[in-house]
Design a protein around this nucleic acid. Sequence first.
DNA 1: CCACCGTTTTTTGTATACACTATGGGCAGT
DNA 2: ACTGCCCATAGTGTATACAAAAAACGGTGG
Lengths: 241, 241
Amino acid sequence: MNNQWQETMLAEVKAGGRISDQHIVDMIRQAVLSQRLPPGTRLPEVALGEIFGVSRSVVRKALTRLASYHVITQQPNQVARVCAPDIDETHEIFAARRLVEGEVVALLAGALEPEQCAVLANHMEAEKAAYAEGDESARIEHSLAIHHYLADHAPNRILGKMLSELILRTSIVIALYKQPSLASCYLVGDHDTLLACLRDGDAEGARRAIDQHLASLEQLLDLRAQENRIDLAAIFGKLGG
Amino acid sequence: MNNQWQETMLAEVKAGGRISDQHIVDMIRQAVLSQRLPPGTRLPEVALGEIFGVSRSVVRKALTRLASYHVITQQPNQVARVCAPDIDETHEIFAARRLVEGEVVALLAGALEPEQCAVLANHMEAEKAAYAEGDESARIEHSLAIHHYLADHAPNRILGKMLSELILRTSIVIALYKQPSLASCYLVGDHDTLLACLRDGDAEGARRAIDQHLASLEQLLDLRAQENRIDLAAIFGKLGG
DNA sequence: CCACCGTTTTTTGTATACACTATGGGCAGT
DNA sequence: ACTGCCCATAGTGTATACAAAAAACGGTGG
């Protein structure tokens, strides 16, 4: 049933106070990232309006913005759906992120204050602790915090914004294609070498570290999944029709 | 007076048929690029609605999308205005574009079919002809066509989209800061060397060519303007406060 | 049993009305 | 003459109503 996430959101709405389009954007984005809203989920405007207690006007604005972030897809006269990038697009997203994040950390190398490095180091320790405890969602949260910190402090704000969006899209495809069996073993170590390069002002080393980190991440995904998914979809389609 | 562009748009509306939000987006974007809508121009929803013959709903959707393209800025309860990036942001836009377009042409090097190269070559000849005739707007149009062609044919569609947006933003700041005195002398030649590299499959050469091309372009802008603007702002700020 | 077609239901597209907020100009006080 | 306040105006924020399109459903004929 897809009433699950609706209830979750409703609860948050009841708890919180007034709801604006930005809140809706944030909540839907979070719900997508945490896989409470699986890719392909239909997002009818009236239903969302009832859930959040606002009218379609506000929902539409939120959906428009979510579409510009590539969280959902909107086609004329059709209901909005949660994005489900295909394998090709996934590779392209990773390639773009390698380029942008590589440049960001290269610019950042040697430009970070000691306390900023400390913030990063804290997140990395927390990430390792979460990994040791097997708390995967906490590990992911800290990992995201690291990368978002890099994006937010990029000397070039345009590249920073780009990186933020790419981190979001990367998270979506990871949620989509990650094979549950494989653990994120190497990834934690990558962050340490990155931090070392940032401290030393080794721009090219930082770029390489990020590049390798993202390559490892991409390796963890199941790119054969395409066949499986298509088969399943076809089967269910036949059964349902 | 700013009734000029309104009349132009009205004429186009009368000539054309139905108007959708996408049309409005395109027309406003074009108007901004061709400087019919100077930076800072107010864009009230009701006025636009009357001009295009649609209601505020459609206008609002168009404005939201224009904001996501960074063509206009929107603040709560305030009139939307045409973007006017400051000098810092201008440099950052150029830096981001150098990175992205450099990667795109590097990916494209050796991957273009002969007829695709021919298309580029045609635009370059047309650009040179326009330059020789002193038809600056035609030259710009062909130059934009070249870069958009590269963006549209990028092997990585995400990078292609990014490049498209960066070309747009670059055009805006060029329209903003270009000093009318300086001609675009070297720029035409850059395109030729780029094409040669693309044909030869010289990825790094193509990257360098684009890099230098964009650097030259940035040089043509008047970045001292900052002092003037800031001085004026500071003066008025002091007087006002 | 399956495919095709018309009808009903769902969902989006657009216009419009009302409420709230910001902006600008005039007026009184200094 | 200048400053501060108040009110009129302009403009956006939100909700809602109606029209059009798409999707889902059921019935009919092969």
